[in-house]
Design a protein around this nucleic acid. Structure first.
Lengths: 166, 166
DNA sequence: TATTGTTATACTCTATAACTATA
DNA sequence: TATAGTTATAGAGTATAACAATA
């Protein structure tokens, strides 16, 4: 455990701190907007958005869990809340009766539509307001590259399911 | 409420999604490392790091709160935990007896030292591994710019203290 | 036997409001 | 009266483990 690598370079440190800072300010602002405009938690918004993106408007629980970092029980909890509000329905899959298919409802799409403009306004105001087109470009390129790599070799936290202890 | 602005451009969307994705994967990985290596929550780490950075090793509660987004009670809670573990001491300021001065202890510095290499390793592995020097550069520049702006005009979530209702 | 999902439970964290004490 | 901080309390969210049901 003797540090095999030197510390981060000054530029890396600056990039890391800046990333952390932006993230720490952006996230709560977005969460507050989602709560104010649609009484949605961030996870709930992600779930709805993902379902809304899908042409069928449906996904299995496992599908939904795989993209996010959350545990299955956590996902069940959030899906229940959405279900109770009528923003989503849950039904057993005919093909595989173990699976639960979650489907966004009209009401769910309506909430999404209500929330979206404000969401975009917050992101624009906090993240993009002061950036040039070129800077946005480079941000997309660089972070896109990082994201690609993380998706290809996900950290433990995103592993689909923990295997048995022994 | 007729959307006053068009949506985000394709590039902006890409940048935002990438940012979100990286953030969503980096944060839990860092949190897990901090917990495993030093039984620290992210906030606790931030507090210790900030105190460790200070030449005096001390800050008032308000000082500490201002940089972070958390409420005062939340900060008291975390500071208590650090205090109980002996990583920090709290004492009344002589100049202003309303203030509580938080000071990092030797044990606190030791935990910080224990945790730091792994912390850096995680950040390097997830964030910087695949980036060129130039890309890190541009990341630091662009996000630094965003951070500067956010610090100058903070969102409500970071406002020092909510004023009375009326 | 492995996989999908839910439930029960415990725990961590955060925020609000009321309160004490000092400036 | 305003500011600094704590405490009491309540609520949201998450994870772990045990469980039931299907493949």
């Amino acid at each position: 455990m003797v540090e095999p690598q030197p510390g981060l370079s000054a530029t890396e440190l600056a990039a890391y701190f800046a990333f952390t800072e932006v993230s720490a300010l952006l996230r709560p602002a977005v969460e507050q907007q989602l709560r104010d405009a649609g009484s949605l938690s961030y996870v709930q918004f992600q779930l709805l958005a993902r379902l809304g993106d899908d042409p069928t408007g449906s996904r299995s629980m496992t599908d939904l869990a795989d993209g996010l970092v959350y545990s299955r029980s956590g996902l069940t909890y959030q899906a229940q809340l959405l279900d109770q509000r009528g923003l989503v329905t849950r039904s057993t899959s005919p093909q595989d009766e173990r699976r639960v298919v979650v489907t966004i409802t009209e009401a769910g799409r309506a909430v999404l539509a209500t929330v979206f403009p404000g969401h975009i306004a917050v992101v624009r105001g906090l993240l993009f307001e002061s950036l040039t087109t070129h800077e946005v470009d480079s941000l997309a390129t660089v972070l896109g590259k990082v994201g690609d790599r993380l998706r290809a070799a996900p950290p433990r936290s995103a592993s689909p399911r923990r295997r048995k202890a022994s």
